[in-house]
């Protein structure tokens, strides 16, 4: 039973690690702010979700699980807000994104 738990946690941690490292590479590699927000979103959603899932599998049913779920809820509520505000301000300050515009734009 312990072995199964450890294997599941290991798989989750592996996916989470890949996710945050690819996200961090994207933060360096992508061309402008608007594209980098997607990479940051990958760290905020994929990395967080899989790391927390791995730790939840380890801790079983206890108070710790509730705290882990709470961390996940906070990050999942706050991450899109910061992303949106950053993107919105960058648009307000007249930064033009790389790439094409389809149709009329606000």
């Amino acid at each position: 039973m312990e072995l199964v738990k450890d294997i599941i946690t290991g798989v989750f941690f592996f996916i989470g690690s890949m996710s945050i490292i690819i996200g961090a590479c994207g933060l360096i590699k992508l061309p402008d702010v608007f594209s980098r927000i997607h990479a940051a979103g990958m760290i905020d959603t994929g990395g967080t979700a899989f790391f927390l899932l791995g730790m939840i599998v380890q801790s079983g049913w206890s108070l710790i699980t509730v705290k882990l779920v709470l961390i996940g809820v906070f990050i999942f509520f706050t991450s899109p807000v910061t992303s949106h505000v950053t993107a919105n301000l960058a648009r307000e300050k007249k930064l033009t994104p790389v790439g094409k515009k389809i149709g009329k734009v606000l």
Partner: peptide, 22 residues
């Protein structure tokens, strides 16, 4: 999860063409 996989692929392969629409 699906879009995480897609974003990862796009970052690794460099297949990005940003667009903006309504």
């Amino acid at each position: 999860f699906n879009s995480n996989v897609g974003t990862g692929k796009a970052i690794i392969t460099g297949n990005i063409s940003p667009e903006i629409f309504i």
